[in-house]
Simulated scan of single mutants.
Amino acid sequence: MRRLLAGDQADLDRDVLCAVTTRSQSMTYVIKNTLQMNWKGAYRDWKGLRTAQVLAACRRLEQRGYLTEVPSSYAVQKCWDATDTGRRHVGVAL
């Protein structure tokens, strides 16, 4: 997939946050697969999306306080969960 432009990054960030809030504690590759499978909550088609692009989006969202990295039983795989701020931003109430 080509390099993401600023508008594409914003779309990806929004879709990643929506995907994580609908199912808690998702691994990076699971988020990518969810978006690639034409997930109904996605704002656009993400065919060709790479795990590294999703990881970058998760890190951006973590810096903004929307996601947090949670402990995983795997040594190198990252697991993410939405913070209360992230859930409020998307409008998901738990």
Rank of each mutant, 00 (worst) to 15 (best):
R14H: 11
L67M: 08
H89L: 04
Q9V: 15
G41I: 02
R59Q: 06
A82G: 00
V20G: 01
D84Y: 03
R87E: 11
R64Y: 08
R64C: 10
D15N: 09
R60M: 08
L35P: 02
A52L: 07
S72W: 09
V70Y: 12
V30C: 00
T22C: 02
V54S: 00
T68L: 07
G65Q: 14
V30S: 03
C18S: 11
L5E: 14
A75G: 04
V20W: 04
T83G: 02
I31P: 01
D13G: 05
L61V: 09
N33S: 10
T34E: 08
T22R: 01
R23H: 00
A52H: 06
Y29H: 15
Y66D: 08
C18T: 15
Y74I: 09
G41D: 08
G48V: 04
R60E: 09
D13T: 07
R60H: 12
R50S: 12
S24L: 06
R88Y: 10
S24E: 13
L12T: 06
C79E: 10
C79T: 10
M27A: 13
C18H: 09
A52P: 04
D45M: 07
D8K: 13
W80E: 02
G86E: 00
L49T: 03
R59L: 07
A57H: 11
D81Q: 12
D15T: 14
L94W: 11
S24P: 05
R3L: 13
T21N: 05
A75M: 13
R88H: 13
A10Q: 15
D81I: 02
I31H: 01
R64M: 12
T85G: 02
T85K: 14
A57Q: 05
K78C: 02
A6C: 01
G86M: 01
Y43F: 10
W39Y: 07
Q53N: 15
M1C: 04
Q25D: 11
Y43K: 14
G86R: 00
L35G: 05
G7C: 05
T21C: 15
Q77F: 06
E69I: 13
Q9H: 11
A10F: 12
V76P: 00
T28V: 02
A19F: 03
G7S: 13
K32Y: 01
W46K: 06
I31E: 00
G86I: 01
A82L: 03
C79K: 15
Y29D: 14
Y29Q: 09
T22H: 02
W46R: 11
Q25G: 01
R60A: 14
S73F: 06
R3W: 09
G41S: 05
E69M: 14
D11I: 13
T83V: 02
K78M: 03
T68W: 05
Q25Y: 03
W39Q: 00
G91H: 10
A57F: 07
D15Q: 10
R59N: 08
Y66H: 13
E69F: 07
D15K: 12
K32P: 01
Y74C: 11
M1R: 07
E69K: 15
T34I: 10
Y74S: 14
T51A: 09
R60F: 10
R59W: 06
R87H: 02
K40F: 09
S26W: 04
M37F: 04
V92R: 11
N33W: 14
R44E: 10
P71R: 14
R2Q: 08
R64D: 15
H89M: 05
L67G: 09
R87W: 00
L5N: 10
K47I: 13
